[in-house]
Write a protein that binds this DNA or RNA. Structure first.
Length: 865
RNA sequence: GGGCGCGUAGCUCAGCGGAAGAGCACCCGCCUUACAAGCGGGGGGUCGCUGGUUCGAACCCAGCCGCGCCCACCA
């Protein structure tokens, strides 16, 4: 056990309530000034480094940030107390879409757009907003007291990051893993940019399924589509090669209505003969499947929609119409020709939407940059399969594999203006050059690719770029790979996989972290996702101000089961604040009664209560420590909550009053034990409630700071089954007597004379239940018996017979049921033969207990007649 | 269409093979000298349904029913 060689605490006067604002004020500054959170790069201590997910800068701290930082900070504080050298690698989103979304929304509200504003001024605006909201959010983060260096400099897209991005692009490019190709990509006509697969949200929407006859006479068939306007770009009709219905048509040309051009009927395995008519129109430039069919059959691929999804270049009267207008116009025209065979509406089908603006995504043939993820994803999968990287909770590992094993090539070019520009230059004669970080761009007549890189390209470099990569810096040497990445499961694919791929690639096989920890999303008290549109989102700042950062943090931790979402509401935060207050007052009691921190007295000097709470303390240490190790914050928090409140406050503190009242050696022992228990408890709680535990711990121990106090170690030598059993019996007797009192309508404060026999710790019982010694005129009017305990009470008058009979009757029913259950089991030969010894023994004990209870209760009921 | 997960007290959730739990809410009594942000007592659940395995099932298996989430190129 670690004893603190510190002076006895100064006389402390704590107010009766925990006042978070007063506590938090100076502490954070003090921690930072003392350098508790600085990594000691020259130390020989083991190290623990964490990549911190950058908060999205949109102006306000939200509960997601608060949760993430609470948990990461808890992990870090524990590691620091365990003697690790710790480092956070924090950052703001440096190329993220959130900020430019905000700016774009503002522009839209002002009736303009980025295209009117111009590239240069748009980028300036984004920077300005980033500066503004970034500063604001950093200030808010500090209220949580996580002790990280949140200086502005750490959160800018600086030269170092650009260099890392450029280096990675160049390497992948030169290795042939980045290529440029015409593909069908997801295109947002409003944002006017390409989107990667995961930036598209699918939902089941109402549309219409229109069946149209293509061709004439015998050379005709019926196709169905939900996007009728795309027929203007059709270059074939496909059927399955085994489909007898259409065999005669394969290879023939049929006439495309409205447009008039002749298109072939091709046989392709992709077509499902069971679906619809078994014939499908093929629009290679506007549908991913059709594109593949087009490639297999060498079909032309005319584009008939422009960047804003207006019909263009179709050589028809529909040119200039918006895609949705065109859809109806085309249908009218086809109907006029009598070609619409069926029109199912509404037809529910899955439609892709832009995750930024909800606009319906249009598949579009366009020239984009891609990463060939094959070898990268394989390596990312391997690193987890062979155990170099652990994912917590393990259940999410399967999802990870599903993802990396089936990953499509990654479209990394975006037609946005804020971000890292693709470092490829085009020469006047069609030359292409990828310019590396130390190379000058080519001169006159060359122009750089207009596109910028997907935000996750730079984010994926986080573990590297924050440590100075591509330079071989000392930090990189010391802190790569990091120990842990802790983030929400929702960005396992977006971010984690990307970091894995880049990290492994850049270092020839060293994964960027040893462990990945995943937490859930914050929900409201009814389990609904918090969102601004649903109106149930909460500004954590308000709760921090009302209840304190500790209350918010403890609430979040108490709900954080790995990988599962956590519900939260104001009542929960209140409960946590109340818990902080409980700790506060328990400490206050300890200080008022002269609790000390120092060597504990010999075991012989300790009361049963002392030995009991110390045994429970060490069980709790072992328990809580194991939970922390597995990132089971909810279990750690709950265990501490119940130990502190139910055992320390409700029982040990009450029992210690007997010792303190006795004075002398018992009082000294209780003071030492109480001081020790609080010391350890506060240390265990510190990761989850840093401010209140720091304040109280300093008050109790007089130590410099709990931040640098050693992490408690469980010592099985403190186990004490005898004391645990004794206190358990004591609790039963006290509870039974309290129950009697309550049901008899006795006021809690009213002292009652009683004669007690067969009870081990009589003085404790008398104190806890407020029973006086019997006087000369003692005239017992009621009795309570439990086990060996016999208590006679003088209620000076008649007792409430009805209440007492009611109480005993309930007990009788319970005992009867108990006995029946036990008897049934014991009467079962199979049970006796097959159940393990200790289970049978337990049932036998239950039976005998039930028997004695029945006899006792029966006698008492009899006596009431 | 696939995959994963969940249905336990009014609400949010733990428990995951041997006597149904917690927090909040609810009812009764209390300003009892650390704490009314508190103390003591109490009520409340055929653990989604139906079968199966087992001496024993909230817990394991199968099938239903009802919810989530993720993935997916069904025109």
């Amino acid at each position: 056990m670690s004893e603190l060689a510190s002076p006895p605490p100064p006389d402390q006067e704590l107010p009766t309530h925990y006042l978070p604002a007063e506590v938090e004020g100076p502490l954070y500054e003090r921690w930072v000034e003392a350098g508790y959170f600085q990594a000691r790069e020259d130390s020989a201590a083991p190290m623990f480094s964490i990549v911190i997910p950058p908060p999205n800068v949109t102006g306000n701290l939200h509960l997601g940030h608060a949760l993430e930082h609470t948990l990461i900070d808890a992990v870090t504080r524990r590691r620091r107390m365990q003697g690790y050298d710790t480092l956070w690698l924090p950052g703001m989103d440096h190329a993220g879409i959130a900020t430019q979304n905000v700016v774009e929304a503002q522009l839209r509200a002002a009736g303009t757009s980025r295209h009117e504003l111009g590239r240069e001024r748009f980028v300036e605006s984004v920077w300005a907003w980033k500066e503004h909201s970034g500063g604001q959010i950093l200030g808010q983060m500090r209220r949580l007291g996580d002790g990280v260096d949140w200086s502005r400099e750490r959160f800018t897209m600086d030269e170092g990051l650009s260099r890392a991005v450029n280096t990675m692009f160049k390497r992948l490019h030169d290795d042939g893993l980045i290529y440029r190709a015409e593909r069908i990509i997801n295109w947002c006509p409003r944002c006017m940019t390409a989107l990667s697969d995961i930036e598209v949200d699918h939902s089941d929407d109402e549309g219409e399924l229109v069946s149209v006859r293509y061709g004439d006479g015998a050379d005709s068939l019926v196709v169905a589509t939900t996007r009728l306007e795309t027929m203007l770009g059709d270059t074939a009709v496909a059927v399955h090669s085994d489909d007898g219905r259409y065999r005669h048509l394969v290879g023939r040309q049929i006439r495309l209505p409205l447009v008039g051009r002749m298109i072939p009927v091709v046989a392709d395995e992709h077509v499902d003969p069971e679906f619809g008519t078994g014939a499908v129109k093929v629009t290679p430039a506007h549908d991913p499947n059709d594109f593949e069919i087009g490639r297999r059959h060498g079909l032309p691929m005319p584009t008939i929609l422009d960047a804003q999804a207006r019909v263009a270049g179709s050589d028809t009267d529909f040119d200039g119409l918006d895609r949705f207008e065109a859809r109806q116009a085309v249908k009218q025209a086809l109907r006029a020709e009598g070609r619409v065979v069926a029109d199912r509406s509404p037809y529910i089908h899955s439609v892709g939407h832009c995750s930024r603006c909800r606009t319906v995504v249009e598949p579009r043939l366009s020239l984009q940059w891609f990463v060939d993820v094959g070898p990268l994803a394989r390596a990312a999968g391997e690193a987890v399969r062979d155990g170099r990287v652990d994912i917590h909770p393990a259940e999410l590992t399967k999802r990870y594999f599903d993802w990396v094993d089936n990953m499509h090539d990654w479209c990394i070019s975006r037609q946005l203006w804020w971000g890292h520009r693709i470092p490829v230059w085009y020469g006047p004669d069609g030359q292409t050059v990828c310019v590396g970080p130390d190379e000058d761009p080519p001169g006159e007549g060359w122009r750089q690719d207009e596109d910028v890189l997907d935000t996750w390209f730079s984010s994926g470099l986080w573990p590297l770029s924050t440590l100075g990569w591509p330079e071989q810096t000392a930090a990189l040497e010391r802190y790569y790979p990091t120990s842990l990445l802790f983030t929400g499961y929702d960005i396992l694919f977006f971010w984690v996989v990307r970091m894995m791929m880049f990290g492994l690639y850049a270092t020839d096989g060293v994964p960027p972290f040893h462990q990945v920890g995943l937490h859930g999303m914050v929900r409201d008290s009814r389990g609904k996702k918090m969102s601004k549109s649903a109106g149930n989102s909460v500004d954590p700042q308000m709760w921090i101000e009302a209840y304190g950062a500790d209350a918010l943090r403890f609430t979040l931790a108490r709900g954080a089961n790995p990988g599962a979402d956590i519900p939260i509401s104001e009542e929960w935060v209140q409960g946590s604040r109340n818990f902080c207050n409980k700790l506060w007052n328990a400490t206050r009691f300890a200080l008022l009664n002269g609790a000390t921190v120092g060597p504990l007295p010999d075991r012989g000097q300790l009361s049963a209560a002392d030995r009991w709470i110390l045994a429970r303390l060490h069980e709790t240490i072992a328990d809580v420590d194991a939970h922390y190790e597995e990132y089971e914050f909810a279990k750690a928090a709950t265990a501490l909550y119940h130990f502190a409140w139910d055992e320390v406050c409700d029982w040990y503190v009450e029992l210690s009053k007997v010792s303190f009242a006795a004075g002398g050696a018992p009082a000294q022992a209780a003071g030492a034990v109480l001081g020790h228990v609080l010391d350890v408890l506060l240390r265990l709680l510190h990761p989850l409630a840093p401010y209140v535990t720091e304040t109280l711990w300093m008050a109790v121990t007089g130590g410099e700071s709990v931040v640098i106090a050693p992490w408690p170690q469980a010592d099985p030598a403190w186990a004490d089954p005898e004391a645990v059993a004794a206190v358990s019996r004591l609790q039963e007797v006290v509870t039974e007597l309290r129950r009697f009192r309550s049901e008899q309508g006795l006021r809690p404060g009213q002292r009652v004379p009683a004669r007690i026999a067969g009870v081990e710790h009589e003085v404790s019982v008398r104190t806890l239940v407020r029973l006086d010694e019997p006087g000369l005129d003692f005239a017992p009017t009621a009795g309570v018996r439990l086990g060996t305990a016999e208590v006679e009470l003088d209620l000076s008058g008649t007792i409430d017979v009805a209440a007492e009979r009611n109480r005993l009757t309930r007990d009788l029913a319970a005992a009867t049921k108990e006995r029946e259950q036990a008897q049934t089991k014991l009467g079962n030969d199979a049970f006796l033969a097959k159940a393990p010894e200790h289970i049978v023994a337990r049932i036998r004990t239950r039976l005998s207990t039930a028997d004695t209870d029945l006899a006792r209760i029966g006698a008492q009921l009899e006596a009431l007649r």
